[in-house]
Design a protein around this nucleic acid. Structure first.
Lengths: 239, 239
DNA sequence: CGGGCCATTGACATCCATCAAAGCGTGTGG
DNA sequence: CCACACGCTTTGATGGATGTCAATGGCCCG
């Protein structure tokens, strides 16, 4: 609820710059890009950043925390379409119809940079590196979703789970966290929704991995003991 | 194989303009946008427009015909990620890594407009309507994939099939074709790959719809007899 | 006219969902 | 600060939807 007043907002000295901003900018351009972020917003766990149907005005770059995005069908079913973490951009789905097409919900206390899309459009006409970056961010999202389609369309439960865990630690590791330890910020049900499985199947699959000595699971704390085994599950050698 | 020499290529008098180009352009801008399309390319059935791993240089707008796009995992499995028809844009996945991330294969003899992405970038810095259009096309693709995720993650075979058929005729109808008759340009196996099902399941589901009087199927010729029934299958009323 | 690809259908197997019950943690309020 | 309650997770038993394997048939194209 509490939106803090405008504070020091400068991409040029943000330590996430390399994650969410273009590389190799001239100092002059860097200064201009600082003007992109209007302000920041803090969210508590379970708070919603935007809802399906909300008017689209801005993109959001995650500074801290973790989010899920989800879509819903006309009847009640919903589908988690992704989990986002620091440096990742949310809201691209809203551009086409000027309304958001999904919900974005904080899975822990989080903070986002609010980037009015008007400014992105105006500035990217003048700074080619920014223009290119915007195109790449959108293209990356398309490629990411292609991968999830492959997962949902052709993998079995254990393969989906293994792919999910590997993807998660890989992204965490890119942000300076451990390559093997994860705190799962989402419930079994949310993982299940993302992977097209039921929560019981997620639980059983994790138990199986644990019995096989591939991971150690204590509630939301997960340690990967044998990453190569996970890799083999995703990509069975003899095919 | 045969790439025709550069011919009359002008978006301004293409009857697909409203499908793949921005609306409401000034005559001056229209003229400039004519320069976007470098040339066209004809493809025979089964021919590949681009492969996963190919260097990305251009987007492709479909003039005539139908394509499928597919991704593959390291082991042999592949997944059809979409079926594209006249006016739709392919190749957006290639922007992020400067290499294509999927294959695009013609399902019938087809023709595409080749749009060098460099030109898109250059011109969209100067023509805001084009810039906006590019963003919308990419955002639309993200939203489309969100819908497929929902389908793959939470729907059962009959629901997926019904959603697929409705989506197909809706797009065909927008292009001036019948609202009820379709010629399926893809095999049962390709439909199955797209919907995360096996070809036998596609065949059985179509047979079931046929028994129920919802569709009439003669090989690749399909006629929808009761679109509302399909709609009810996608969105069961009591939920 | 023949061959190969595509489609259909049946019988059976498997994976995952469903239903149910109990245990564990966390956080909140007294 | 403790106790309780609720939400989350685990595990078992069972069932159902879809996959798998197999055989046949039809259509289209060369």
């Amino acid at each position: 609820m509490t939106i803090p007043p405008t504070i020091q907002v400068a991409c040029s000295n943000c330590n996430l710059r390399e994650l969410c901003m273009p590389a190799g900018l001239q100092p002059e351009d860097l200064r201009r890009i600082d003007g992109l972020v209007k302000t920041r917003r803090k969210l508590r766990r379970r708070e919603t950043l935007f809802h399906n149907g909300d008017k689209f005005t801005s993109l959001y770059a995650i500074r801290t925390g973790v989010f899920k995005t989800r879509v819903a069908s006309d009847d009640g079913r919903d589908q988690v379409t992704g989990f986002q973490m620091a440096g990742e951009i949310m809201g691209l789905d809203g551009i086409v119809n000027a309304r958001h097409n999904c919900d974005a919900v904080a899975l822990e206390d989080s903070e986002v940079c609010i980037i009015p899309f008007e400014r992105v459009e105006a500035l990217s006409r003048e700074v080619p590196a920014l223009q290119r970056h915007v195109h790449q961010v959108m293209s990356r999202e398309i490629v990411r979703e292609n991968g999830v389609l492959l997962l949902l369309g052709s993998m079995r439960a254990e393969e989906r789970m293994a792919a999910f865990l590997l993807n998660l630690v890989q992204r965490l590791h890119a942000r300076g966290f451990s390559r093997s330890e994860v705190i799962l910020r989402m419930t079994r049900e949310e993982i299940g929704s993302y992977l097209g499985l039921k929560l019981e199947t997620i639980s059983r699959t994790l138990s199986k991995f644990s019995e096989d000595g591939i991971v150690d699971v204590q509630q939301r704390n997960l340690r990967i003991l044998d990453a190569q085994a996970l890799q083999r599950i995703v990509n069975p050698p003899g095919r």
